[in-house]
C-alpha cells in the first residue's frame, strides 16, 4: 500500500510504485480532471503539484509522491467550492476551447503565481512553455494570468 495525500485527503493505493502519478490519479482514485497527452512530459496536460511545485504526472512515478502533497485540478478551488483566482480569470478571459489541456495550464499558472505573484512576460513564457494548447489559446492564457495576478492594466493591454 502506498500512502498518499491528495488534495488534502489521505488516500491509500495498492499499485506498482513505478506507476506514473497520472494513472493512479485517473484510474485508481477516479479523478479524471488530470489529462494524458503525450506520456513523455512534453505537453503539460498532466501537470499536477507535488508540494506546490508543478510536475508532469505522466512521467513521475507514484513512489515519488510518498510523503508529499499531491494537488490536482480538483483540489485548487476553495473548500466551499469558490473557484481560485486563476480559475476565475480563466472564465473571465474565456480561455478554454476544447478544454483538454486546461487542467494542466491552470496547474502550471497556479504554481507560477504562487512563486511570482506578478510575473513578467518572460516569466510567463518560461513557466508555461511546457504546456501545449492545440486550440492555440496562448494569448488568452497570458491575459488570464495577468488578470489573476491582479495586474488588470497589463491584462487589458494584452486583450
Amino acid at each position: 500500500m502506498i500512502k498518499l495525500n491528495v488534495n488534502g485527503q489521505a488516500r491509500e493505493v495498492d499499485v506498482d510504485p513505478a506507476t506514473p502519478i497520472l494513472w493512479v490519479v485517473r484510474e485508481n482514485l477516479e479523478m479524471t480532471g488530470t489529462k494524458f497527452g503525450c506520456g513523455i512530459a512534453m505537453c503539460g496536460a498532466c501537470t499536477v503539484h507535488l508540494d506546490g511545485k508543478p510536475v508532469r504526472s505522466c512521467s513521475t512515478p507514484i513512489s515519488r509522491a510518498e510523503g508529499k502533497a499531491i494537488t490536482t485540478i480538483e483540489g485548487i478551488a476553495e473548500d466551499d467550492g469558490t473557484l481560485s483566482k486563476v480559475q476565475q480569470a480563466w472564465i473571465e478571459a474565456q480561455v478554454p476551447q476544447c478544454g483538454y489541456c486546461q487542467s494542466g495550464q491552470i496547474m502550471s499558472a497556479t504554481a507560477l503565481l504562487q512563486k511570482d505573484p506578478n510575473p513578467s512576460d518572460e516569466q510567463i513564457d518560461a513557466a508555461m512553455a511546457g504546456n501545449v494548447c492545440r486550440c492555440g489559446m496562448y494569448g488568452r492564457i497570458r491575459t488570464a494570468i495577468k488578470s489573476a495576478a491582479g495586474n488588470t492594466q497589463a491584462a487589458k493591454e494584452e486583450a
Binding site: T32, K35, E74, L83, P96, G99, Y100, Q102
Partner: peptide, 26 residues
C-alpha cells in the same frame, strides 16, 4: 460567455477518455 467553460476549468468536463463503465478494462 460559453456554458461549457466553467466545467473546463475545474476538471469536471467529461471527455471521451474520462468515460467510466462498470467492469471496464484498459
Amino acid at each position: 460567455p460559453r456554458k461549457d467553460i466553467p466545467s473546463k476549468v475545474n476538471g469536471t468536463a467529461g471527455f471521451g477518455i474520462d468515460a467510466q463503465v462498470e467492469g471496464m478494462k484498459y
